[in-house]
């Protein structure tokens, strides 16, 4: 029933055309990143994932806010509070994964990925790291977008404030030499790791994944707790 609700929301999102704004924004971002000539796969995807993070967060907010409030409550009565809030996050993840496929394919199709120089990772490994970076950015974006949705923030203004402030903080507190790097998801850290030649060890990536999982888990748990009370 969670899946049925996620599907209903995605269908409404596509049919109602609300998916278009974040989709176009995402494509513009991809065009800017990859339009400037060739670069190695890992660093190109690293930039792409970091730049798409706010787009993923916005996409999540759009997915969660597309439905009228009363329809969201009707869904809550039909499937229960926990499944209703989970279905929103699930729909956002599905939409984000679909866009991740686009984000991985675009530079390959545009010919923006250059052949690896000595010491750089192969294109295949670079694509693999790129998928990982996008999935981590998507997780962080879904977490931020969830707590920025109308059901949580109640007003449009508060929602936009959470979305924008969150996105800015992720960048600012994610910079090298940040005072509190652990307070934000490792979006910038992953991007930096992918730009290094040679790329860091698997252990370093494992640490980044663990960091992202803990951060997203904590924020999504907060979302679930708030949504239990706010319909």
């Amino acid at each position: 029933m969670t899946i049925a609700l996620a599907r209903m929301r995605l269908v409404a999102l596509v049919r109602g055309g609300r998916i278009l704004a974040p989709l176009i924004a995402g494509l513009v971002v991809l065009g800017i990143i990859h339009g400037g000539g060739q670069s190695p796969a890992a660093s190109a995807y690293g930039y792409s994932a970091a730049m798409l993070f706010p787009v993923f967060a916005w996409l999540t907010k759009v997915v969660l806010d597309a439905e009228p409030d009363v329809q969201r409550r009707l869904a809550r009565v039909a499937v229960g509070a926990a499944r209703e809030s989970a279905a929103g996050a699930l729909a956002a993840v599905a939409a984000g994964l679909a866009f991740t496929v686009v984000a991985i394919a675009v530079p390959l199709v545009m010919g923006a990925i250059g052949p690896p120089k000595p010491g750089e990772t192969s294109i295949v490994a670079g694509v693999g790291l790129g998928v990982l970076a996008h999935v981590l950015a998507l997780g962080a974006g879904v977490a931020l977008g969830s707590v920025a949705c109308r059901a949580v923030t109640r007003t449009v203004r508060n929602g936009v404030v959470v979305l924008v402030t969150g996105s800015v903080l992720v960048v600012v507190l994610g910079l090298r030499g940040s005072i509190a790097p652990w307070s934000v998801p490792p979006v910038m850290a992953v991007s930096r790791a992918l730009a290094e030649v040679p790329v860091p060890s698997p252990g370093a990536f494992l640490l980044l994944v663990g960091w992202a999982v803990v951060w997203c888990g904590a924020v999504l748990a907060g979302y679930a707790a708030v949504r239990r009370r706010r319909s």
Binding site: M1, A4, L5, R7, M8, V11, A12, R15, G16, G17, E67, P68, Q71, L74, A75, A78, V79
Partner: peptide, 16 residues
């Protein structure tokens, strides 16, 4: 909502 009556009821039935 961007559904017809039948589409909407079909989706709501699936939720149940």
């Amino acid at each position: 909502q961007p559904f017809t009556t039948e589409q909407y009821l079909t989706a709501m039935a699936a939720l149940r």
